[in-house]
């Protein structure tokens, strides 16, 4: 769900940069206020590596194929660091593989990064309640992982419908978007399972990683 260069109207690309720039400034300021700002960088860097590489790993879901985004997992594990991590990952995806684009980097970062920050907030908010039930954390991380992806997909589809006018055949484009939505629903399930598994693994093996 990376918006490429050249499709977005310039106004929207600039607005995307404004929103992402503001969010990046805010998150970096909050990171600087921490006791040791570099403490979480190894963790953030490794998850950025995972985010960067997952866009190359295609999972065949008929009729097309999807790739994981993992922004829910990044939000849960990284907290405030998730947004800079998404921006850096997207930048390298755009520069190296042409996945996304430089002019659309702002829009893409807002589309995937802000839901990641929301995921962090929701997870921290509901974590005490979830811990009271068996498999509560598993269910919560599944829901947050899937919901974050769905939120990003909803923003993506809204932008694709409203900002990019159908050139030739609007009906054909709508059908393509409907097929894409089905793909995102399946992807949300896969992301949820993946997020839940990683969170369960980290909580068991290295619980201090989860307390960001």
């Amino acid at each position: 769900m990376h918006l490429p260069d050249g499709l977005l109207p310039p106004g929207l690309a600039i607005a995307g940069y404004a929103v992402s720039g503001g969010t990046l400034w805010y998150t970096l300021r909050r990171i600087r206020q921490e006791r040791d700002p570099t403490e979480n960088i190894p963790k953030a860097s490794l998850l950025t590596a995972a985010f960067f590489i997952t866009s190359l790993l295609h999972i065949p879901v008929p009729p097309a194929s999807i790739h994981l985004v993992l922004n829910g997992l990044m939000g849960i594990v990284l907290g405030t660091y998730a947004f800079p991590a998404v921006v850096i990952g997207l930048f390298f995806q755009a520069v190296m593989f042409g996945h996304g684009g430089i002019s659309s980097l702002g829009v893409n970062a807002a589309m995937m990064g802000i839901p990641a920050l929301l995921a962090s907030a929701v997870f921290q908010l509901l974590k005490p309640q979830a811990q009271r039930f068996a498999f509560g954390i598993n269910a919560l991380s599944f829901t947050v992982g899937a919901g974050t992806l769905l939120l990003s997909a909803a923003i993506f589809v809204t932008l694709a419908i409203t900002a990019i006018p159908a050139d030739v055949d609007a009906g054909l484009e709508q059908r393509a978007i409907m097929i894409a939505l089905t793909g995102y629903a399946i992807q949300a399930g896969i992301e949820g399972v993946f997020t839940s598994m990683i969170v369960a693994f980290l909580t068991r093996v290295k619980p201090e990683l989860m307390n960001s």
């Binding site: 990376h2 490429p4 499709l7 990019i164 393509a176 894409a180």
Partner: peptide, 8 residues
């Protein structure tokens, strides 16, 4: 272009 994806 197709469903928000595409290239020039």
């Amino acid at each position: 272009r197709q469903a928000g994806h595409g290239d020039i």
